[in-house]
Nucleic acid binder design. Structure first.
Lengths: 227, 227
DNA sequence: CCAAAAGTGTTGAAACTACACCCATGG
DNA sequence: CCATGGGTGTAGTTTCAACACTTTTGG
């Protein structure tokens, strides 16, 4: 095949902001760099895009390689292209954000150099990764209100209390319990299970499941998720 | 400088979906291709990113070169990276959308191979540009409801009638005149001018201006634009 | 029995929807 | 005087925000 575009090309990378809820707080997964530049600094997991993969595939591959995570919810965030974001040479990075369930927080990162940080404890990051993290947070805070993203951060079966604490952690403010429950149940996208939480030292809560099929059906008829 | 990342690299391009309101309808700016592949097909304006420019700068430069437009509102849309989007070789494209004011529709495209198409008259496009256009439309329809984007498509001074017709053109449905006016005026982000429309063969309308400073002030205090 | 989270209704205020007529201008 | 879009108010309905007490479990 003849290469038609013989310009010098920027390198193309992906970076990934991975969020999870852990102990009621929103956390983000960082890796410690081994090599220069920014050696030993914390950074977002990421790496270079190969010719035979899309950027989404590259992000998923890097996540697996660097953090052991797979089976995550992943969306493109923004493409960062400022000239000096990598001191070595021109690197354009397609940033993504990912949401993972609590089980993966414990199990998924064992064989790796990755660590979860609460938002308030994130150290200064390598490259322009502080800016990428900030944008990812803004996106999550905005989108969680009009898309059913929250369920990606919960186990498949969850209580309304967990769901509310999740929204409170992301939005950074308290919500009224009665209004929250009413609003969610009114939407009709939660499947009420015949199952209760157990082994808790308080009144056990009913479990619910996100009814994705019903949600899609409603969206087709003009329904808008909103919280 | 040593090049540390000696992988084969995808080519990096930008594409641009340019919207304008013309004769009350939403239109998009297309260029006719001269060379293979897709010679003589219509396509989105775009081109390759140079080492010394960001993707936004590349999009603005290509717009100027291919369509004569400058001074547009531009935002990144999405980065398209599927393997076969260009039949020659791997090209990743950072798509943008732009909003231009009516004056530019007449004046801006004279020395060029560009043409405005009403949405219903857009022909099949080169590459994956149909998909890019579709996503840009969805983004515009979604975002215009919760961000003050509409003003980018109007002259600096406009009437409430123009504003309403703009929303009707983008959203594709009619809105109630009294409710629309009340909703917009209540927000307090329109500056009422001491000036009237003239040379119209009906009762002249008051002119308004988008009060951007006031809008920013309100946003800082938690205000959310919504229509 | 204590601690902890689950669960449940009402009320006043605000926003939303639907709807019809007169006004000012140019031709 | 006609055609055209500009401009205005109300009433019924729905949604929103604020608020406190009882229940069930484990320890």
């Amino acid at each position: 095949m003849s290469h038609t575009y013989e310009f010098p090309r920027p390198a193309l990378a992906v970076d990934c902001v991975v969020f999870a809820i852990d102990e009621g707080a929103l956390k983000v997964l960082l890796v410690q760099r081994g090599a220069e530049p920014f050696a030993s600094d914390w950074a977002l997991p990421g790496g270079f895009v190969r010719l035979e993969e899309t950027t989404d595939q590259a992000a998923l591959r890097e996540l697996r390689e660097e953090t052991g995570l797979s089976q995550v919810f992943l969306e493109q965030l923004y493409t960062f292209s400022s000239l000096e974001r990598d001191p070595r040479e021109r690197v354009v990075s397609v940033a993504h954000y990912a949401l993972v369930r609590p089980a993966a927080v414990q199990g998924g990162t064992d064989a790796s150099q990755a660590r979860w940080f609460a938002l308030s404890e994130v150290p200064p990051l390598a490259f322009d990764h502080d800016g990428i993290l900030t944008m990812a947070l803004e996106r999550l805070r905005g989108k969680v209100r009009y898309q059913p993203l929250g369920f990606e951060l919960l186990p498949p079966k969850f209580t309304l209390g967990q769901l509310q604490r999740l929204y409170e952690a992301i939005l950074g403010r308290e919500l009224d319990k009665r209004n929250f429950r009413r609003a969610f149940l009114r939407m009709g996208i939660l499947e009420e299970l015949d199952e209760m939480q157990d082994n808790v030292s308080h009144r056990p809560s009913r479990l619910y499941r996100f009814h994705r099929a019903e949600y899609k059906r409603l969206v087709k008829r003009g329904f808008n998720f909103e919280i």
